[in-house]
Simulated scan of single mutants.
Amino acid sequence: MKFDEIKASFWSRDTYGVQPALTQATVADAEKVLGLRLPESLLGLLYVQNGGGVTADRDAFPTSQPTSWSEDHIPFTELMGIGTGEHGLSLLDTPYLVEEWKLPSPVVLLSGDGHYWIGLDYRSCSALGEPSVTWFDTDSGADLPLAADFRAFVEGLQPLSRFE
């Protein structure tokens, strides 16, 4: 399924973690705080809904090797939006979380729980480049590249039920 088709049905109906509606000013402020340009594909989803739970049709990503989570996939049940702490974790919490969990940098964390994080990985591109998406396992210290970019990551998401 192509990204534009996915965009319309990406989010679950759950409102937990949903930040206030995204504005261009909020995006500009976030990019300034993070020191990076966020991918257009990510912003496209966040303009539809600024973070929260993803639909059960798209809550896992297949992996080419085992992780601490599973032999063949990782969870992706939510995507952080851009906002303040009153609505749950936000992409703006990345600098604190990177330091707290001793993660590589520069990255922007998209989802996770401390034992693992899924993030935009800017280590092999410039701050203005198109980051890949990587799984960061804080328990083992390993990281696993998942997709060349955020659009490819979203297009590769599958139902968790497929793996059970």
Rank of each mutant, 00 (worst) to 15 (best):
P20Q: 06
A56F: 11
R151C: 13
T77S: 15
L120M: 08
T67N: 07
Q24C: 04
D137T: 05
L157I: 07
E5D: 15
A142T: 04
L79D: 07
Q158H: 05
I74P: 00
E86P: 01
A148G: 15
L36A: 06
L160A: 14
L34C: 10
L109Q: 00
D93M: 05
F163V: 01
G141E: 04
L91A: 06
R123F: 05
G156K: 11
R13I: 11
Y122C: 07
G44F: 00
A127L: 04
D14T: 10
P39A: 04
D29F: 11
E100D: 13
Q65E: 15
P39I: 06
L38S: 10
P145S: 10
P75D: 11
F163E: 03
L109P: 05
L38Q: 09
W11F: 13
F10L: 15
S68Y: 02
D14F: 05
L92H: 06
T134F: 03
H73Y: 15
Q158A: 15
E100A: 09
L97R: 06
P145F: 05
A8D: 15
A147P: 04
K32E: 13
H115K: 06
L79I: 13
L45F: 01
R37P: 00
D72C: 07
A152Y: 01
A21D: 15
R162I: 04
M80A: 13
A56E: 14
A152E: 06
L146A: 03
Q65F: 01
A60G: 02
G53L: 12
G52A: 08
G51H: 09
F3L: 12
Y116E: 05
E86D: 14
W117S: 08
E155C: 07
G114Q: 10
Q49N: 12
E164M: 08
G51C: 11
V33Y: 04
L110W: 08
L34K: 03
P159C: 02
F3K: 06
D14I: 12
R162P: 00
D113H: 12
W135A: 00
Y96L: 13
T77I: 12
K7G: 00
A21C: 10
L46S: 07
S161T: 14
L42N: 04
V107R: 04
F10G: 11
E71Q: 14
K32F: 06
T94H: 04
G53V: 02
G129I: 07
Q158P: 00
T84I: 05
D149Y: 05
P20Y: 09
A28F: 04
G141C: 02
G17T: 09
A60T: 00
T77W: 05
R123N: 02
A8P: 00
E40W: 03
S161I: 13
E71A: 14
G35I: 02
T23H: 05
F10W: 05
L110E: 06
D4Q: 12
L157H: 04
W69K: 01
D143S: 13
E71I: 10
F76C: 11
Q19S: 07
L43Q: 08
G114F: 10
E164N: 06
L43P: 10
T23Y: 04
Y16D: 14
V33C: 03
G35M: 01
E164I: 05
L160K: 14
D121T: 03
G85D: 14
L92M: 11
Y122T: 03
A8Q: 15
L79E: 09
H87P: 00
I74T: 10
Q49M: 11
S111T: 12
I74A: 12
Y16C: 13
E155R: 08
T138A: 12
S9D: 10
